[in-house]
Design a protein around this nucleic acid. Structure first.
Lengths: 239, 239
DNA sequence: ATTTGTGAAACGTTTCACAGCG
DNA sequence: CGCTGTGAAACGTTTCACAAAT
């Protein structure tokens, strides 16, 4: 019942593109906390991220008023607020499907826990992987158990890291077990029912779109200086 | 000199979002070729991909006229046309930076060659990785050689698969060597000079944005039937 | 003085709808 | 008749610019 809209914007009207930017705000704000900042203006935060200050203010305004005029935003508080908006003030169990090279890299990645996720179940098709333990102590189970285990554990999110020919079946099994959010690494369009969220991780497409801008007959652009300034520790700020 | 615009749309006016969709069109069209299709209408292609037919027609219209009224598009020809537009009718050497779990998974992935890419150089910081050969026979070199090797090999694209604290340095080294397109897997904002293209692979952000839609207190949505139809082999199409 | 939150304008993208071609 | 290519309209997103708050 505790919804994060403050009455003005029904949740279903908030653009998804705004939602997708919030994790970047969290990440950057956390870096600012680590650097010793207590408050930040939308201008400074925007400079860090490489977007406009107006965009940050507009994005946040969908959810409430978090800043103070003349002062900016209290960094630690804003992190908590956004984490709450995103339902990240709890941990989410995730089912990892596929324990090949990619799946093993995902299982070994130390970035999930601090991001509110836990690889709670792992599945694979290959007999030689079954029964293996991940570094976190999760056993690899046969893929035929996806639906039943996901359902029994109440898992709501899945990662598809299997070859493209298996991706649709694996996604169907996840959905059958009650999963409503899927991160898909397979280079194929996976169809899911209404009400199931899906995000694609598609490095090949990303690379194939960048080659458009790489003229085959031209040498690299001339060297320019590196860019805007990175976060500096608070204590170094003097003038 | 052989540019892919046919005179009406200068390349610099074509929206990047259109460019980013072209690889999906290629992938889907190739699946249609494999299923025995010779022509396809924008309606059918749109249904396969899950977008509107108007969007496909508009996207393609930026580059020329590839269809025939009353007939649709010749599938094999359209694949070639789009590959040409994207500069994918050649192979691109790519520098992989980082040979940890993720880098090893990337190096082992068999999807690059058919997508016009080749992992041509691999770099890592850890002494125990240096000198190791990838499955494709590429030696892992120390990261201090990134700039010189990339420059010597004429490499134009790089993949950053190192921990976030090293990502900026590695990207700088790539750019110093002449790289102008970077795929970044590190969960940090990497700053690059004007003229360098960058795409982010950010699974954690993708997951953190999906949790917004997973109400913490609600059980999974009721079961619905699986969706639109997948590609069927031509020979099965009868009615 | 500084900075937020937000109407209104500007800009970008998608969809409609249909003339015209095969 | 079926389907493309595309003006024009609709829709979505970003930016401007400023009143109000401290």
């Amino acid at each position: 019942m505790v919804q994060h809209t403050n009455g003005r914007y029904p949740a279903h009207e908030i653009p998804d593109i705004v939602i997708r930017r919030l994790p970047i705000y969290v990440r950057t704000l956390r870096a600012l906390v680590a650097a010793g900042y207590e408050t930040v203006s939308s201008d400074d935060l925007a400079a860090q991220i490489g977007v406009t200050a107006a965009q940050i203010r507009r994005d946040l305004s969908y959810f409430g008023k978090f800043g103070k005029q003349g002062k900016g935003y209290e960094v630690a508080t804003l992190v908590s607020e956004i984490l709450h908006i995103l339902n990240l003030d709890r941990q989410w169990d995730v089912a990892l499907c596929g324990y090949g090279h990619l799946g093993q890299a995902i299982a070994a990645y130390r970035g999930f826990e601090p991001s509110s996720f836990r690889i709670a179940a792992v599945f694979d098709r290959e007999p030689e992987h079954i029964g293996v333990m991940t570094a976190a102590g999760v056993p690899v189970r046969p893929d035929i158990e996806i639906t039943s285990v996901v359902r029994a554990m109440g898992i709501r999110m899945g990662i598809v890291a299997v070859p493209e020919r298996a991706a649709q079946d694996v996604a169907d099994a996840l959905v059958a077990g009650g999963v409503t959010a899927i991160l898909n690494y397979a280079p194929v369009i996976v169809r899911v029912p209404e009400g199931v969220w899906m995000r694609e991780i598609d490095p090949i497409s990303a690379m194939q779109s960048m080659t458009y801008y790489l003229d085959s007959h031209t040498e690299p652009a001339p060297r320019v200086d590196p860019c805007p300034a990175p976060i500096r520790p608070m204590h170094a700020a003097g003038d």
